[in-house]
């Protein structure tokens, strides 16, 4: 496995604020890597450390084995799709896409040919003569993507690429980005605060919390076996059980997570709760219980009897689904 990006104990402090604090990270070549976390968790700063817009206060960053500590952004073979797209408003779409070739001195005919090729790749053939102001949000994002790909970077960075799009467009773009990445074989690193997006698109992901990586692994690892309470809370709609409840359910006195899909309602059991809400999801109903102040959720498949709000019920579960984790 070739390593595309490697962080070794990397920190970025802004005065007293530790935006990134001792991060170790390896991203494999050709993978689709997600950085997931709430705002202010350091994920965007990590992306900017790769592109070179931030300098680490400590540690080393290597891109394909080369230390980039003293390499300015314009000499890194890495390109970025910006959150606000950052298209140049005074240039038409073709000139925007060809910009990376223009600054490297490519001849007009050659760079326009390549730009049109890139526009075709993102399904915007024929839009070359328009100005960015005449495009919709989704189209602008495709232009930003084409512009970032025109230099054939070895790593493509995407900063909340789908944040500004509406749901339907976002889902379509998710599929498209994924297939684009597979076709081009370039390493994609994308930042998002949307756990569904990260889980569905990434080959592997890092969950950030307060400038550190809370967990790094495949989507299945992260979802099924969250390492800490934070990961379980943030990533999933998992039930987070305090130590005393884990013990009551027959486990050790440790924090644990229990997925709603693995949780059923039962007539009797060691843990009981009052039904506080029923949320109809189509194929199932999510039943939310209040068990002595701990919120628990269970999924009841469609067609099975449902409790009513205010009713007291016990929960049962598949013991193999109980996953122990660290407290912080």
């Amino acid at each position: 496995m070739t390593v595309a990006v490697e962080f070794q104990n990397v920190s970025r402090h802004f005065g007293q604020v530790r935006a990134v604090d001792g991060v170790d990270l390896t991203i494999a070549e050709g993978s689709f890597f997600a950085m997931l976390g709430p705002s202010g968790s350091g994920k965007t700063t990590c992306l900017r450390l790769i592109s070179g817009f931030e300098k680490p206060t400590g540690g080393a960053i290597r891109i394909f084995g080369e230390d980039v500590s003293n390499t300015p952004p314009h000499l890194r073979n890495v390109n970025t799709v910006f959150q606000d797209y950052a298209l140049f408003p005074h240039m038409n779409v073709r000139d925007n896409v060809a910009y990376g070739l223009m600054v490297k001195g490519a001849a007009r005919a050659a760079r326009y040919a390549k730009a049109d090729e890139m526009l075709a790749l993102v399904k915007l053939d024929g839009y070359g003569d328009r100005k960015p102001g005449q495009l919709s949000g989704g189209q602008r994002q495709r232009v930003a993507l084409a512009r970032a790909l025109v230099n054939e970077p070895r790593v493509l960075l995407l900063d909340e690429p789908l944040g500004a799009l509406d749901l339907k467009l976002r889902e379509a773009m998710q599929d498209e980005l994924k297939s684009l990445q597979q076709r081009l074989g370039i390493t994609f690193v994308f930042v998002t605060h949307d756990q569904n997006e990260a889980l569905s698109m990434a080959d592997s992901l890092a969950v950030f919390n307060e400038g550190r990586i809370a967990q790094i692994g495949t989507p299945q690892d992260i979802y099924d076996r969250p390492a800490t309470r934070f990961v379980a809370d943030f990533v999933g709609s998992s039930n987070v059980l305090p130590p005393e409840m884990t013990r009551a359910l027959g486990g050790p006195a440790e924090w644990a997570s229990l997925r709603p899909e693995a949780t059923r309602l039962a007539a009797t059991g060691p843990v009981t709760g009052t039904v506080t809400a029923l949320r109809y999801l189509g194929s199932a109903t999510r039943v939310v219980l209040d068990a002595n102040g701990t919120e628990l959720a269970a999924l009841v498949p469609a067609g099975q009897p449902l409790p009513s709000e205010g009713q007291t019920t016990a929960i049962a579960f598949d013991p193999s689904a109980l996953h122990l984790m660290a407290a912080s």
Binding site: P73, H74, L75, N79, G100, N151
Partner: peptide, 18 residues
Amino acid sequence: VPTSMLEASADLGATRRQ
């Protein structure tokens, strides 16, 4: 002129002068 536009330019390989 948003900062991201200047960053985009550098990101695509432009020198300060460009």
